[in-house]
């Protein structure tokens, strides 16, 4: 039964995935952590791993959440759930696209506004569901600066921060 519920959650959320994976992480957190399926800490581990492994972040998160809750079957249904919406929409556009004419540029603009709201929601959800320690806050601030001021690949920023976090907690 849990796998059916997992599929349904990710299937619904899949329709919101515009403008990069970060738009839906907040909604996933609300549904998964909010329902008590995983603890906030477990969820942050999932996010960190998902950003450091190949593949789209949102799909990785879905796969990992499913795996944590329901093993390989959970991973499979969650991944399918989040990937079905694009397939459905691509088919639907193919069938109905000629009857409805939308201005693509305007649509992308509108989607971008909606996606930005979702990214704000993600940031708010992640910050409010945690007791942010000062070191985490510092790491976040430095990463932000590195991201907007330099051309360093974000993967290296995350790896650097991870090593820093490891040293801080061990020393």
């Amino acid at each position: 039964m849990e796998s059916v519920a997992l599929f349904w959650v990710f299937f619904k959320i899949g329709f919101l995935a515009f403008g990069g994976g970060w738009s839906i992480v907040g909604v996933i957190a609300n549904n998964i952590v909010g329902k008590g399926w995983l603890s906030p800490e477990e969820f942050t581990h999932i996010i960190s791993v998902s950003q450091l492994t190949p593949g789209p972040v949102a799909v990785n998160i879905a796969t990992y959440v499913g795996f944590k809750i329901c093993g390989v079957l959970g991973a499979l249904v969650s991944t399918l759930g989040i990937l079905l919406p694009p397939i459905i929409v691509i088919f639907a556009v193919g069938f109905f696209g000629r009857f409805i004419k939308l201005d693509k540029e305007r649509l992308n603009d509108a989607l971008r506004v909606g996606a930005s709201s979702l990214v704000i929601l993600t940031l708010y959800t992640l910050i409010s569901s945690h007791h942010l320690e000062f070191t985490t806050f510092l790491i976040a601030a430095f990463s932000f600066l590195f991201f907007i001021k330099t051309k360093i690949d974000p993967v290296y920023i995350i790896l650097g921060a991870a090593v820093a976090g490891m040293l801080i907690s061990v020393l």
């Binding site: 932000f144 995350i158 921060a161």
Partner: peptide, 11 residues
Amino acid sequence: LKGAFGAILGL
């Protein structure tokens, strides 16, 4: 993972 999470918030 905690350090990585901090970076992700910043990103």
